[in-house]
Design a protein around this nucleic acid. Sequence first.
DNA 1: AAATTTTCTCTAACACAGTTAGCATAATTG
DNA 2: CAATTATGCTAACTGTGTTAGAGAAAATTT
Lengths: 197, 197
Amino acid sequence: METIERKPRSRENARSGIIGTAKAIARREGWQAVSIRKIADAIEYSAPIVYEYFDSKDVLLDEIRSEGFRHLHQEYERIVKLYRDPEKRLYEISLVQWDFARQQPEIYQVMYNLNGAYCTIPVCESDAMQAVGDTVRQTIFSFIPKSKESIQKLYFEWWATSHGMISLAMLLKDEQHVEQSEQVYRDTMRRFVRGLR
Amino acid sequence: METIERKPRSRENARSGIIGTAKAIARREGWQAVSIRKIADAIEYSAPIVYEYFDSKDVLLDEIRSEGFRHLHQEYERIVKLYRDPEKRLYEISLVQWDFARQQPEIYQVMYNLNGAYCTIPVCESDAMQAVGDTVRQTIFSFIPKSKESIQKLYFEWWATSHGMISLAMLLKDEQHVEQSEQVYRDTMRRFVRGLR
DNA sequence: AAATTTTCTCTAACACAGTTAGCATAATTG
DNA sequence: CAATTATGCTAACTGTGTTAGAGAAAATTT
């Protein structure tokens, strides 16, 4: 993913090379260390070339963020198709969220402007994020048919609980053991889902 | 807090001037806009002077962060002294946390490396943060005398729930109405406290 | 009072950041 | 072959954190 040959490369190829390099640097050195010049060096181009693919660093980060939300959305839809029991669905969705944040922390960080990642473009306006929200709201609605406002409140609660634990576990990863955090997360999310009926 | 006269100023005076200016800029333009030169301009000094008071920007941010945790700790202690009922205590502490994040979002952001604020120094090692944790753990212990591990787990849960809602409400402040978020927060925290007994 | 030292503050510079303008070369088209 | 388009570069601008070293002013000593 790092040292890409320069010779045979189409436009889409270069674009994904930029994204991949940005993610690789962020994973290795943190988002603060991600610079246009460093990306350009890695893909063996000069800095201005990057601007042929992304209008600004902000737009690049936004693209990576949207990619993250789209990936998450796909995973959620997979879960929805896999299980029929609404409770099982929501619980498994919760686990997917945890695993995603564990396996690709740099993506999770840019999605929520965490730990030095900073994208000016408001995340609320992202269609991908809306789509994720819709899937979860539908799942909640599927076993608790309530008013739109009530569903929104429950979704907000679920989201906050999950995101709170994930971002806190990231913050304390040196002090608190991952296994324990994960156990608490599982228990809490299971309890949350149970509490819905 | 912005245009400070230069004439009569002691060392402590200048130090707090730097901190105050940094906070003011962060509040007005976000943490990403906080630069050493801008701070120096505001206090009518040249940039290197700032380094006489703080070894680096990182240290400056860490100081502001610790200040935030110390302030929060004081508020928590005030609540503990004010109420005898443990449930009331924890609930009021939760509300203090919300109000703090509402009234001084820039401080809350630097405390958790949110929204462009980025301090390299690990927050876990902060004594002030530990002190805050101790107070909350004690409060939880005061009406649920369990093992250290259980208390730690409950504290983690409480913290995650509170922090999750606060940071999410910050993220969605344009979409979701503050009043509704606050209502959900109050309900959730009350339910959490109730659920402890 | 003169000389010396210490204190205070500044300018200049370095490497790096995001970003843009303009030029050179290569590929394609007529 | 000539003209045009595409491609990628260098150089530059402003702004960032940070450091070195110069210079003035104040305090101290002789």
